[in-house]
Computed example of a mutant assay.
Amino acid sequence: MSTIQRRAGAYVLSHPLAFFLQTLKGFRANQGLLLAGAVAYYSLLSIVPLLMLVVVALSHVIDQDELLGTMARYLEWLVPGQSAAIVAEVAHFLAHRDVIGWVVLATMLFFSSLAFTVLENAMSVIFVHRVAIRRRRFLVSAILPYCYIVSLGAGILLVTLVAGSLQVLGEESLQFLGRSWSLGGVSGVLLYLLGLGGEILVLSSIYLVMPVGRLSVWHALIGGITAALLWEVARHVLVWYFSTLSQVNVVYGSMTTAIVVMFSLEIGATLLLFGAQVIAEYERVGRGEQDQAAQRLHTAP
């Protein structure tokens, strides 16, 4: 494996443009935008039920207001400018959670797992060379989304606790030689790094778990860092666009929130699958297959 990684790393460093173009070609051949649209659509159906399940479970451990505040802060990373609307729906649901029945709970579990199922199918298209060698058992595919939901809930619990500690730190000040320096700026930087680090870890975990077969941690980190950095650029562009140039509220009216969330999820899903394509191409060049297209799924004309 180390030989493959060295070969792949040497190729990427010596031919970065060729590797980038090769990745774009593979992404287009795999109909990446079409796959991203499917992932974004089912993510739109899944995001609110998933958050409701997580918040209902964690509200027994963490203060509800603190949990919703943390969720609103980091939802801005996923749906810039629209986190308040989503958190408001989750808060409204929490206010009436005493009427939750088993049917509603089962429905929420089903819809919250849809995005993971579709994402797994999209990954199987990009990593078709792995599927051709080894297929995942049906039971594993059925259980995997719910295991990931539990892991995501544990991650949100950890982030909430750490973010709360950093906010308390921001209210303190440093006294030295008769001068006082507020730690608010340090707290803000640490909160941003916490969000970025969490984003990279979540993306890397998706790349580590979703593709069939065993993926090295290094390859998963390559995809996670690539997708996270691209999303950071896209996120700031989206915030600037929707706050200055966009007239989407004039065109779509009451549907604005759904349209903006869908658009953000579409871009996020595209970058997520592009990161997976980077890993797939990295594996191929590591095995000396950069000139062979036989193992790639060609559906584009």
Score class of each variant (00 low, 15 high):
Gly224Cys: 09
Ala142His: 07
Gly170Arg: 07
Val39Leu: 03
Thr299Leu: 15
Pro145Ala: 05
Trp181Asp: 04
Ser173Glu: 09
Pro145Gly: 08
Glu89Leu: 13
Arg284Ser: 03
Tyr252Gly: 01
Ser205Val: 05
Leu33Glu: 05
Leu13Asp: 03
Arg97Gln: 14
Leu203Asn: 10
Leu272Asp: 00
Val278Ile: 12
Glu171Leu: 10
Ile126Glu: 04
Asn30Lys: 14
Thr270Ile: 09
Ala88His: 13
Ala294Met: 09
Ala29Val: 00
Ile206Gly: 06
Tyr148Ala: 08
Gly223Arg: 14
Val99Ile: 13
Ala95Cys: 08
Leu34Asp: 09
Val150Ser: 03
Val237Ile: 14
Ala115Met: 13
Leu177Val: 02
Arg97Thr: 11
Ser204Arg: 10
Leu265Lys: 02
Gly32Asp: 01
Leu78Pro: 00
Arg135Met: 12
Ser124Gly: 03
Leu297Asp: 03
Leu94Pro: 07
Val56Thr: 11
Tyr241Asn: 01
Asn249Leu: 09
Val261Glu: 05
Tyr42Pro: 02
Thr270Leu: 15
Ile143Lys: 08
Lys25Phe: 13
Arg136Asn: 02
Val104Arg: 15
Thr257Lys: 09
Thr244Tyr: 05
Leu158Gly: 04
Tyr282Trp: 15
Leu157Thr: 12
Ile156Trp: 04
Asn121Leu: 13
Met210Cys: 07
Leu78Val: 14
Glu199Tyr: 11
Glu172His: 15
Ser246His: 05
Ser187Val: 02
Gly223Leu: 08
Leu139Met: 11
Ala18Trp: 15
Tyr146Leu: 03
Val260Glu: 15
Ile47Phe: 06
Val233Gly: 11
Phe242Asp: 04
Ala154Leu: 15
Val131Met: 12
Gly153His: 06
Glu120Ile: 01
Val55Met: 09
Ser243Val: 01
Asn249Phe: 14
Thr270Asn: 07
Arg28Asn: 08
Val212Ile: 01
Ser151Arg: 10
Gln82Leu: 06
Leu58Ser: 07
Ser205Cys: 06
Phe20Leu: 12
Ala154Ser: 04
Ser205Thr: 09
Ala163Ile: 11
Leu265Pro: 05
Met123Gln: 05
Ala220His: 05
Leu33Arg: 12
Leu297Met: 14
Gly288Met: 09
Asp63Lys: 08
Val118Ile: 08
Glu199Ile: 01
Ile156Met: 12
Arg284Trp: 15
Val12Ser: 00
Phe27Trp: 15
Ala122Met: 04
Val168Ser: 14
Gly170Asp: 03
Asp65Asn: 13
Val61Asn: 02
Leu174Asp: 00
Thr117Glu: 00
Trp218Ala: 10
Trp102Gln: 11
Ile267Leu: 10
Gly288Asp: 02
Leu78Cys: 02
Gly213Arg: 07
Leu75His: 04
Tyr207Ala: 02
Leu193Arg: 01
Leu24Asn: 03
Glu232Arg: 10
Glu171Tyr: 11
Ala258Leu: 13
Tyr207Gln: 05
Ile200Trp: 04
